[in-house]
Structure formats: structure tokens, C-alpha cells
Design a protein around this nucleic acid. Structure first.
Lengths: 222, 222, 222, 222
DNA sequence: GATGAATGAGGGTTCATTCAT
DNA sequence: TATGAATGAACCCTCATTCAT
């Protein structure tokens, strides 16, 4: 499951760079694209969309400023492709989750692991923060994120909760009406991490476990 | 309690504007300052710190561009003072909460009302979004917010939980270790409101109540 | 007649610069606008629209680059306003010409004087060359010039020729079908002046007189 | 005569492309050069020298951008060679004209045909417009054009007029002093064609005939 | 205090030119 | 010879900040 999330090979690369199959030219093009996206992620998450300078993105990627425009038509496109390229691999994972047959507390535990390892401990947390920050100014992006991630995630959560209720693992089905409640601590973790960690470090794993313990009853072993 | 939050009279106004003893001059200065802050709030929350233009702030406030600089030394200061001016009145309220002697579920219910009425339904939610968005670029601001709001809020939550445990209203004291868990849904509400409400409206009151019902047992009447 | 052409006072100046009636502020604004137009004329006619740099226009006008944008919304607008501001005063003059009651050869002689003094010997010749050069890329401009200058000029020429025929001053009315033929040498003069004068100077007055002598019979005295 | 003007075979091709003795290699090189020049003509006359992009020239010529530099050392050279390649074939024709022994009105009629067919109805009119537009920025080009075309054309016109006077076909020799007067309508035709034809179409042949009728007496049959 | 014209540094974007393949 | 990815100088335009009025 985690593998699906961290998979990087399948992402779409620019058409321009792929006319030769496996040629060194094409490979280099793909690498450049990746380098630009990586640099862009760092600059955008450090300064936000507006304040980030393409000059810095280029310098960080070790290329000339004009080169960016060989891969992305403008700053906004670069930003949107960045978000998409990081979000897309998550989507497949979400589909999986709702199909797993296991006690709900175990699924929750897997979610904790996955979330910490693939979001909190990677730059993906920054992407999510960027969506929160810039979403209102990029309605297309918010819609994409809602469609590809949020609605599927909530659907998966609902399915899991339903099965838990059927199996009698969950007496109270109140939270099924607001699946957001289950994920809320994850959002807190991301925001806390970015803003307040230096004042008061937060043990994300422990917090999420406490949350699920409270929701579903104690312990992984249960 | 709500009054304390929305109170606007006690905020510090520019020193320059207070050389007269409450004269019309000073009053006008205070009003100008307020108008600028109001306009700034609208522009900053609509476009973010970088993209907001002081020209638009001035126009919206009905003054000349240069006038802003009579009240705030630069754009960044204006932004920080804006956040402070909106955050400060909340602080007092937070102190109150932890002293209220009442069943925890009732306190929770008051919190729901207060949060929806004073945050979600006002522009204050935008301030919080701005802190999330711009915090990483304005460490001073994040620190201020942490010190004045977050740490006090968490302290208050902890105190309330402690009393609830003492009174036997709350068996499990696990969440006392992570008071963030109690507030997490409020954060979700703010973010959802800004990004996804047009796709799927969220009944914030209902969600928060479901949350507290689950945490503390059902119902307002309880 | 010449006065009408060279009149500069009546040209429209930016609305911004005219809120005070005759204030120093407004006057300065008008002067700035004129200075920018003058500098722009020099740069545009030396290098063409595309190659001209606003940086140079600013430097030549003795102002900062950004100041241009206080008076003109962009480079293209500056160019179009430049053409209009130089063309407009000509229009009135054209109306006059067709009403003058005088022997055709005398009218022609006046035209020669006017053309040389107000077009060839001023920067207005450059404006006409600019219209020829950039017209195809600025259809609006070509249309404006056709409507305001060409069609009126041809109309005036036709009227004069008609009266000349009626008075028996002109036997052959063939050229009335192509009034362009009467003005053609003026165009040659402008182009020659810009391109070939350094190789072979052209006495424009003499050429135009020879032209009209041939067309209408010899001499001013006639 | 017309054949000489439109002849394309004799034009100089790049030295680089001629090391093989007429081999297929060389031929291909010549064809490429021609393709580039053709594409350049279209782009330059549509947008002007500055605004034309070599990228578009390459695309239109069906080659890669870098290939242009194998045939022309830079954009300016390409432009100048383009003008030369289109102008050169005209030169020979001009020499012919002055030697033709025929009534002046017939020579004029041949000129009309030639001008319309080979200039107005081809892209050559655009070359002339380009010289007018860009001449001031490319003194070399203006000089070349003056030397190769203008001075010869005027010389030829003078010779023809001289013979016409000698033969008694032309009483007034005033225009011999300004041979530009004879060609002026051709310039008008080119400019009108580019700028005003859509507002008021101009029958170039008819205008030129009217012009020569007026100058030399009526009719082709004469 | 209040204005808004003026400034000029800075950023996004383009495109002629180069060069490794 | 041909390619087209890469470069980076240059240019238009914006906007926070200043200052004469």
C-alpha cells in the first residue's frame, strides 16, 4: 500500500521528452522535469505560490531560468502539475483501503503508519499545506483535490466504518455521518508540524493512536 | 463570552493617533486605522499576503495609498497587526473557559456556539487560514499565535478535561494527553469551509456536536 | 492653416492629470505626458514599435520607467496614443482645404508649403512612416488613419478637382478617379527622406511643384 | 522580361552548400536555403523584423531551429540575404527597360503589366514594404537597395524620358528632373494594398494607366 | 495629517543563439 | 549535416515605498 503511494515511476512526463523509447535524451528530459518539480516543491512550500521565484527554482534545480519553460508553460502550470504529480499516486492507495478485510483497529493502525511514513515524513505534507493555502485562489486545484482525494478518502472511510458496524466492532455509528472526524487529527498533525513543532514537538503517531484508541477501543493487539 | 471575543474597543491603537485627549482628531485616526485593517483583512484573505496589493487595500478603505504608511510602517507590519488585532480579543475568552464550572458537555456546547458564531460565521476564520498559510514565512507570527492562542487554548482544554475526570464525567483520560484531538474538528471546519463547501456543504454545528457526543456522551441536555 | 496643424494645446490629456483646474499638479502631469510622447516618437521612429524599449523612452523623457505606466496603460496604448495625438490636429486642416476658393494651382502651392513645413520638416513625417510600417500589425491604427486622414484627404482632393473642372481650370478629369495620384509624390518624399536622402538629397518643394506644374499647368504666378 | 524578374535559378547559394560538384547533397542544401528564405519572407512580412521569430521560420520551413544557423549566420543576415535574393533578379530587368526601343506609352504599359504581375501580385511587394519599414534600422540595406534598384530604376526612367523627348513624344521635360514622379503611384499602390485595401479596394492597373495616360497622352493603342 | 505622482528594484516570460548528440 | 534542448540576456510590467505638495 505504501509502495503505491511512494511510487514515482508512473507519473506522466512531458510529451516532448518521450519521442525516443528509452533514449538518453528522453531519460534526461524526464530527470530534468523531476528536478524542476522537486525544486519547485521546495520553493513553493517555503514561500507560497506568489512569493516563490522561478529564478530560485531554476538555481535549486541547477538549470537556467528559461529551461523551466521547456517543461512547463508558466508558473501556474508548474504549480498545478506539481500538486497533481504528488497527489496522483495517493489516489490508487485510497481505493485499496476500503477493500481491506481486517478489524477496524488494524486498518486504523495501518493508516497511521502510512500517513506518518508517506505524508508527514515526506514533502507530501507540504503539498497538502499548499493546497490549503492556495486552494481558494486556484479553484481548479481545490476541485481536483476534492474529486481525487477528499471524496474518495471519505468514501473509503465510510465503507470501512459501515463494515465495522456490521461486524459489531463499532456500537456508535454517529461518526459515520461525519467521516471528516476520523481524519481531522491528520490535518492537525500537518498544520502543527509546519507551524508549532519548534515550540512543542508533536508525536504524530502517538496522537493518531490515541485518537483511534478512543474511537475504536484500545490497542493494536485488540 | 461572545461579547469578549467580538469586542473591538480595547485594542491598542497607533500611538500617533493618541496625542489628543480623546479629541475628534484621535477618534478619526482610530477609525482610519480600523478601516485599513478591515480592508486589509478582506484583501489578504482573498489573495494571500504576497498577492494582496496595498493599492486595493487603500481603495477599499477609501483612502490614499500613502495614508496606510501613516498608520503602519510597511506591508508586513500591517499584516502582523491585522492578525494580532483579530486574535487578541480571543485570548481573554480562552481564560474564561477554563474557569467555568459546568458539566463538560455543556462547556463543549458553549464552545460549539462560540466557535460557529464568532469564527466560522465571521472573517475570523480567514485570519486562522492566513496564519496557516503564511505562518511558515512569518515565524514571529506563528510564535505569537502559538503563545497567545494555541498554548492557552490547549491549557484551557486540559484544565477542563482534568476537572471532568475528577468529577467522574470522563472515564478515559487518554485524550488529555493530546488536547489537540478535541479541537481538531474545528480546524477541519475552517479548511473545509474555505475549500470544499461549494462541492459538499458541511454543517459545522452538527459535526462538532457529533464529535463531542462521541467524546463525552450524547446530548446537550445530559 | 498651418497653425491648425501645429496646434498642440488642444490635445486630450490624461483624465488623472486634470482634476484640478490649472493647478500646478495638473500642468506638470500634462507636461510629463507630452515629454513621454515626444520621447516615444523618437524611439519608435528610430527603431520601430517592437524594437523600441520603454526603458529608453523613459530615460529620454527624463523619468523613471514606471512613470510611463501612470500615463499609458501599456506599450501598445502609448504607441496608438502617440499616433493619434500627432494625427488629430491634421484632421481639422483637411476640412479647410476643400472649402478654399482659389485657383487650383494656388491651392496646390499652399499644400506644398503646408506639407513641407508641417510634415517633412517636423517629426510628423516619422509618424506617417510608422503607420506604413506598423499598420499591418495594428489594424485598428490603419483603420483610424484611413478614416481620419486618408478618406478625408481624398475627399478634399476630389472636391477641389471638381471645382477646378467646373471652372475650366482642368480639362482632363481622369485623375479625379484616382485622387491618390495627386498625393503620391508626397508619399515618395516621406519615404525618400527616411531612406535615401543621404545618398541623393531630394528637394521636396521642387519636386512637388514640378508635379503640380505638370498636372495643372506651370507656375505659381499662373 | 517578366521571366527575368521571377527567375530564381541564378541566385547565389551559400558557399557551404557548394563543395560537391552539383551532387544531390548540394542540391538539397540549396533547396533548404530556398525553403528557409521562403519561410522567412512570410514571417518577416507578416510581423516585421523584430517580431518575427526564428522558431516560426524553422517550423514553416519544416526544419529544426538550429538548422537555420547552418545557412545564415544570424537573424539579421537572414533578413538581409532575403531582401537581396528577392531584389537581385529585378536588377537585370531594369537594365533591359532603358534599352527597349518603343513608343514611351508602350513601355509604360509594359511596366504596368510587369509591376502588377511581379510585384503587386507576389510577395515581392512585401519585400519593398519591409525595406521601407526596416530601412532606417538597417542602413546597409537601404544603401544596397538604393544602389541596386533605386538609382538604376531612376537612371532607366531618365533614359527613356530622354529618348521620348528626342522623338518628340514628350513636350514637357519637367518630369525628367524628378523621375521619382513617374514611379510614385507604384509606391502608393504597394502601401495602399497593405493598409487600406480592405476599406477601399484599389484597382492598381487602372490607376497606373490613368497616371501614364495623363503623363504621356491617352491609351495603349496610341 | 493626507494625498497620489513618482520611483526603481524585481519577477515572469521570450527568444536569438549555442552545442552536445 | 541536422537536431532541439539549453542558455541567459533583455524586456515589459507591477507594486511597495517615498516625498513634494
Amino acid at each position: 500500500m505504501a509502495a503505491a503511494v511512494s511510487g514515482r515511476g508512473a507519473r506522466g512526463s512531458s510529451a516532448k521528452a518521450q519521442n525516443a523509447t528509452g533514449g538518453a535524451r528522453a531519460k534526461r528530459g524526464v530527470a530534468r522535469r523531476e528536478a524542476i518539480l522537486k525544486a519547485a516543491l521546495e520553493e513553493f512550500s517555503a514561500r507560497g505560490f506568489e512569493a516563490a521565484r522561478l529564478d530560485d527554482v531554476a538555481r535549486r534545480a541547477g538549470i537556467a531560468k528559461g529551461t523551466i519553460y521547456l517543461y512547463f508553460s508558466d508558473k501556474e502550470t508548474l504549480f498545478q502539475e506539481l500538486v497533481r504529480s504528488e497527489i496522483s499516486p495517493i489516489v490508487g492507495t485510497l481505493e485499496h483501503v476500503s477493500h481491506v478485510e481486517a478489524p477496524i483497529r488494524m486498518i486504523a493502525e495501518q493508516f497511521v503508519e502510512l500517513f506518518v511514513r508517506e505524508i508527514i515524513e515526506t514533502r507530501r505534507k507540504d503539498i497538502i499545506r499548499l493546497i490549503i493555502s492556495e486552494g481558494p485562489r486556484f479553484p481548479k486545484l481545490a476541485e481536483f483535490y476534492y474529486r481525487e482525494v477528499i471524496s474518495r478518502a471519505l468514501g473509503a472511510v465510510r465503507a470501512v466504518l459501515r463494515r465495522a458496524v456490521e461486524r459489531g466492532e463499532l456500537a456508535n455509528d454517529a461518526i459515520a455521518r461525519f467521516p471528516q472526524l476520523l481524519i481531522a487529527p491528520a490535518l492537525v498533525a500537518i498544520v502543527w508540524n509546519a507551524l508549532f513543532d519548534r515550540f512543542e514537538p508533536l508525536d504524530v503517531r502517538a496522537m493518531l493512536r490515541a485518537h483511534f484508541d478512543f474511537m475504536f477501543g484500545a490497542g493494536r493487539a485488540a
